[in-house]
Amino acid sequence: MPEMTYAQAIDHALGQAMAEDPRIVVFGEDVVMLRRELYVRFGPRRVRQTPISEAAFLAMGVGAAMAGLRPVVEIMMVDFIAVAFDALLNQATKIRAFSGGKWNVPLVVRTSCGGGYGDGGQHEQCLWGLISSMPGVSVAVPSNPQDAASLMISCLQSEDPVVFMEHKLLSDYWRDYLGGGSRKTVAFDVPENGRIGKVEIPVKPFPPGKGKVVRKGEDLTMFSLGVGVHRCLEAAERLEEKGIQAEVVDLRWASPLDRELITSSAERTGRVLVVDEDYSAYGLSGEIAAVLAENGLRPAFGRLGTEGVIPYDVRREAKVLPNAARIEQAALTLASV
C-alpha cells in the first residue's frame, strides 16, 4: 500500500476512475493548474477549465449528467456554491423525483471546505449541514487519505448527486495556497494522520452512508467528520488519562447519516457529543439528536460546533472552531452526568 497525501489520494482515485470510465469529465475554475496531472494524462476534452461562472457551470454539470456524462464539477471553495445554489437546490436534487424516478443525475460536486488557516468567514465554512438539508443529495466528508480515495470512488459510482468535500487543512496544496503561501513564518494545527497515510490500490469504494468507529470506548461517543475526527481522537487520548473511555465515530458522510451506527453506539455508551466544524444550529448535531430521539434513546447529549460567523483573527478563530481542549471540556461535563 503506497503512502499518499490526502490530496494525492483524491486525484489518484479520480484518475483511476477516469481511466476506466470515459464518461467522467472534470470541469471548474483553474483545473488545468489545480489538476495538472489529470490534465496531462486525460487531455483538454476531459479536464476543462471554466470561467468564473459557478451558476452556469454547476448547472451545466446537471444537464451533462442528465445527458449521460459523469461530470465532476469543481467549486473551488464550498462558500462559493452559494453563487450556484439553484443548480443544486432546484435542479440536480429534484430531477429524479420530478421525472417520476425515470431520470437521475449522476453529478459529483467536488469542493473544499473548512477553516483553521485564518482566511475569514467567507472562505472557511463547512456548509455540509446546509447542503445535506436538501433531499436528494449525498455529502461525503473524508478525514484521511484512504477515506478520501474510497469516498471519491463511491461518489463517482453514485447514480444521484453527491458533494465531495475536501478539508483544506488536510489538503497540502490548499493549505499551502490559501494559508501558507510558501511562508515558513506560519504554522497550522494539521492532524498528520489526516494529511498523509497508506492507500489501498486499486482504490475500492466505501458503502454510502456508512460511518466507522475509529476508536472504541464505553463512556461516551463522539460523532464527527473531517478534521473534527482528529480533534476528537486527540481529546480522547487526554480523556483516557483521566479515566474516561471515549468512542470516536467518523461518520464519513454528512448525508445519508449512518443511523444504525449512531443509535448502536449511543445506546452502548449512553452519552453523545457531536463535534461539528459546521454551524451548530440547524445542522448535523440537531439531526443526530433527532435520530436518537426517533429511536427512543435519551443519552446525555452535547454538541460543539461553530457559533456565528468565523472570525478572521486567528486567535479568535481557534476558539470558535472545535478544538481538542474544548472537546475535552465538553466531554468531561457530559461524563459527569
Binding site: 488557516y117 482566511d119 475569514g120 472562505h123 490559501l178 494559508g179 503561501g181 511562508r183 478572521y312
Partner: peptide, 10 residues
C-alpha cells in the same frame, strides 16, 4: 504577511 503576522490569503 511574509513575517506571518497576517493570516490567510493576501
Amino acid at each position: 504577511w511574509e513575517k506571518g503576522l497576517i493570516s490567510g490569503e493576501m
